[in-house]
């Protein structure tokens, strides 16, 4: 399946060597010009990219911290049913629940008169 060099380089299309040489030279000029052109824009683009990255990182840190904090708080604090149980076990509550309103008034009066003795 060997072919002549002429057929290998020119087939199946008819572009001639001058066209190809000029195409590459134009492409080379464009490549060089394009590489020089964006140099002025690069710092701004880079700056924008840096700012965006910093903001995104900060937002992520805040989000993670908030979620972690809430999770830790939830783990450490007893839930509402536990709080009721603790409250009902308080001996002071039991004492206050056992006295009548009349007794409470007497205590109140006693406290006032006692305090006034010191004035």
């Amino acid at each position: 399946m060997k072919k002549t060099d002429e057929m290998k380089t020119t087939m199946p299309f008819n572009e001639n060597n001058d066209y190809i040489d000029n195409l590459w030279m134009r492409a080379a000029e464009k490549a060089i010009a394009q590489a020089e052109k964006p140099s002025a824009k690069t710092p701004i683009l880079t700056l924008h990219r840096h700012v965006l990255t910093a903001v995104a990182t900060a937002a992520l840190v805040v989000l993670v911290t908030t979620i972690s904090w809430k999770f830790i708080c939830k783990q450490l604090s007893p839930d509402s049913s536990q709080q009721v149980a603790v409250a009902s076990e308080n001996p002071l509550d039991e004492f206050l629940g056992s006295i009548s309103d009349e007794e409470a008034k007497q205590i109140d009066c006693y406290q006032i008169t006692t305090i006034s003795d010191y004035n």
Binding site: L23, W24, A27, A28, K30, A31, I32, Q34, A35
Partner: peptide, 9 residues
């Protein structure tokens, strides 16, 4: 061709 040229440079 153009892209090749740009990437080589």
């Amino acid at each position: 061709v153009q892209e090749t040229s740009i990437n080589i440079w």
